[in-house]
Design a protein around this nucleic acid. Sequence first.
DNA 1: TATTGTTATACTCTATAACTATA
DNA 2: TATAGTTATAGAGTATAACAATA
Lengths: 133, 133
Amino acid sequence: METERPDLGAMVMRLGRRLIAMEEPILARHGVTMWAYVVLTGLRDSPTRTQAALAQSIGADKTRLIPILDDLQKRGLIEREPDPADRRARLLGLTAAGTELHRAIQAEIRVAEAGLLKDVDGDAFVAALRALS
Amino acid sequence: METERPDLGAMVMRLGRRLIAMEEPILARHGVTMWAYVVLTGLRDSPTRTQAALAQSIGADKTRLIPILDDLQKRGLIEREPDPADRRARLLGLTAAGTELHRAIQAEIRVAEAGLLKDVDGDAFVAALRALS
DNA sequence: TATTGTTATACTCTATAACTATA
DNA sequence: TATAGTTATAGAGTATAACAATA
């Protein structure tokens, strides 16, 4: 039997805001926005794609991606070159610098997450969250 | 030891989007927006307040509240009358109809939530989520 | 003609600033 | 003068529509 509680949605949203507040200083210290970090993560997980496919995989609009990719490319964090086989498409991937930046940021985020999870059964929570998300 | 997994923030955001997608048809069927439902919930949890206090408690701007309150009042779901002791303030509360509408919506949401949680240890997940949020 | 990426535009959401009325 | 609520305005974020290059 379950006691009175807030809606799942309300709790998840509050936790989401808390996590963003936690991550934002880390991202800022490394000079990337949340979306830029999401892009780096997306490219690390699946390095070669068209921009449209990347946009869909991270849940963003393809037009929103463009200034983000422009910036990441200018800073040497991603590669972005026309596909020789179909010059309409752009092959995307992390550079060594991009890979390292992502690794560094994610490492800090993991430390912060561990601090948050230490009061609960973290493994069980993460397992359930993975199944639900 | 923890296996490779997405960031907590990414998973929580995905779950949040999933929950919103789940709730939206329920809310639409009852003719209320997400914010209107949040307002009803806020007033049920703590019936009497100023609009500014309500806004803060639900994490909204006070100016955003106004058209929502206008609509809820016009539909007879909330009471909103000047405080006799300080006529600048508006005393807010649910009407019987508002209480019943909120109850009906929340009941449907709980059913939908149960469907979602049936594949995981729901009680443990909710307990951890409460603690974290 | 269809598709990828891009640019230009419009729309939605949200917050800021200015105003009215009470105190 | 200070505060609650309201209205008007501006800003950020996002999506839609039009365009250029390639297939």
